[in-house]
Design a protein around this nucleic acid. Structure first.
Lengths: 338, 338
DNA sequence: TGTCACTGGTGATACGTGTCACTATGGTTG
DNA sequence: CAACCATAGTGACACGTATCACCAGTGACA
């Protein structure tokens, strides 16, 4: 009694009493098939546990049905973006593979180009910044889409780069009496970091507040700590707008080391709503980001590009502020306000 | 001028002046081919940028060459494990796809079984706990290996479940004068959490110290906070062994809320060496884990199972303690021994 | 009644690879 | 010199699917 091979479309056809062609048309929904036979074939296919052989299918269609996602190694929230992207890819009939890259932006770009040229993938989505030269709209090479892009020629995927809530932070802090600001920025290769940076500068200027400068430029907490250690002794009272929660916790630590109280001498905002932010002392005001939804949206854009469809609009906003202790009495704007 | 199709092994054969069979034998390294022709063929293949069509290959060999990795959504360190696993899989000639699952352990198990039955994958590696019934050694179904397993019939992948350093923690704290201990455990579905739990109990007992109990049972920081809030008022001085850093930061917060100083009244240890642990106040003593290496090892085990080889031994230890402020003056054992 | 259009379905074929069975060529041995 | 063997290479085929070209039947309409 040997192990039986998995059923093929021919098996289904034989049992259902139709031709293999008919089975194929039923499964792809392309031919002219009567509802009766369609249902019959589907029933038979289900009853014998038929699954299309993807290898054979993709050989015939000359489409691999495979998408690649490029991720870095050190970004925790990619986990959730990956999850969202994976769902969308599978629903759209693709399988999604992940590749992790490290090294300089040139190294990463090189790797992405290599993957694109390999011909194995129909599309590539990258969660880490690459040079704009790697991005493509898919006319002669597979489309490469960046969920976080390096330069101005990029096609970035919207919402993650929307830093509008930075303006809300600054306005609320000004309303609470703060006049002096500092920005601890992330790497400017990330469009999100760049957007926060730009929004910070614009808002501080517009409101006539004072910016003591922009520091940072990397994501790790140590960068945030060093930024605070670099401030002049007479900096407080000062409001620190950090580009993410990792930087913000570094800021908290740095402030403590200098004997500055938070939120007394220094107030701090973060971004990402990392799990630890509700347990630091003080707890961290931050922006909650729906990374799953961001991942879904990014993948939808890629799938739309693959199908030559219009990019779907972003749905509801993925971000909202979580006010906590690190901003003291500053809070959401009153409903009345300008 | 139309877009040219990717070159096939026939193209290589034609240009190299040999048969397609020869090209195939060269590329798979199986036939009897003279070194001269082999090199010639390889050169030609390279020059025209030939890449084997994976779909055609896998149709012929009836092997998909695909592996699946199951991950949860909320575990940051999976990112690095994924990266390690991905490298090994690619080196071994497999492509690796990721699926994320959520829900109860039954839901997850169901999903894994579904994937295994789908016949698309040659092997499955799961980073989240599933019921032992899902695990298989691959005799009639694809092998399913758990990097973190649910019950005793599991095939868990070693080092991550090695909680030996818990004993070092307890010994060092006892040497520093601590007598009363508490364990804040993780979900016992994770073999790592179970190992830490068991090692804690055994060590405390062996050293004749007092355990005020085991609390927790989930991973989020709030669990750690609640554990501290549940302690009796006269608990301090007490040493808290937390199952990971998320729990530990919750413990720090809980202690602060109760007015207990760390490391004065309470000392705390964590696990995982999360980035924030060096910036909490106080900084967190923890265990640094090489998740990349763990991911590599897990994938090597799966590949070995696929090939019917002996499982490769774990290399150097992936874990070491990072002593920081939260354990006060306790530190590495003196070189002199017992 | 003959013709046309349309619906529902079939037969044959090609995708690119790996592998079985086989052949030609020298070299070695009895 | 015949018989044999190992080496190096070839021809033909099958894997399971999607799709092109075709065909039978059925009304509709002039």
């Amino acid at each position: 009694m040997s192990v039986s091979l998995p059923p093929t479309s021919r098996d289904v056809a034989r049992i259902a009493g139709v031709s293999q062609t008919t089975v194929s048309y039923v499964l792809t929904g392309k031919g002219a098939i009567s509802p009766a036979t369609r249902e019959h074939v589907l029933k038979v296919a289900d009853s014998i546990g038929y699954r299309p052989n993807l290898a054979a299918r993709s050989m015939r269609t000359r489409r691999s049905g495979r998408l690649a996602v490029i991720m870095g190694v050190a970004f925790d929230n990619q986990m959730r973006m990956l999850s969202g992207a994976s769902h969308v890819a599978n629903e759209a009939g693709y399988v999604m593979e992940t590749h992790s890259v490290e090294g300089t932006v040139e190294d990463r770009t090189e790797r992405v180009l290599e993957l694109a040229a390999g011909g194995q993938y129909e599309g590539i989505l990258t969660f880490v910044p690459v040079l704009g030269s790697a991005l493509s709209d898919g006319r002669d090479a597979p489309p490469v889409l960046a969920a976080t892009a390096f330069d101005e020629q990029m096609r970035s995927v919207g919402e993650l780069a929307d830093a509008g809530l930075i303006e809300v932070f600054v306005r609320a802090l000004v309303a609470a009496g703060h006049r002096r600001f500092v920005h601890v920025a992330g790497p400017q290769g990330f469009s999100s970091a760049r957007a926060r940076h730009d929004t910070y500068l614009a808002t501080v200027k517009r409101l006539g507040a004072e910016s003591l400068g922009v520091l940072g430029g990397e994501w790790p907490p140590e960068t945030g700590r060093q930024a605070v250690l670099a401030l002049p002794d007479d900096a407080p009272p000062v409001a620190v707008i950090a580009a993410n929660d990792d930087l913000a916790i570094g800021v908290l630590r740095g402030a403590a080391e200098r004997g500055w109280s938070v939120p007394g001498d220094v107030v701090v905002t973060g971004w990402d709503n990392a799990r630890f932010g509700a347990y630091t002392m003080p707890t961290l005001t931050t922006v909650d980001v729906d990374f799953r939804a961001a991942g879904r949206h990014a993948m939808r854009l890629l799938v739309a590009a693959l199908r030559g469809e219009e990019p779907p609009p972003q749905g509801d906003s993925l971000q909202h502020i979580v006010w906590r202790e690190s901003t003291g009495r500053a809070g959401p704007p009153a409903a009345s306000g300008t």
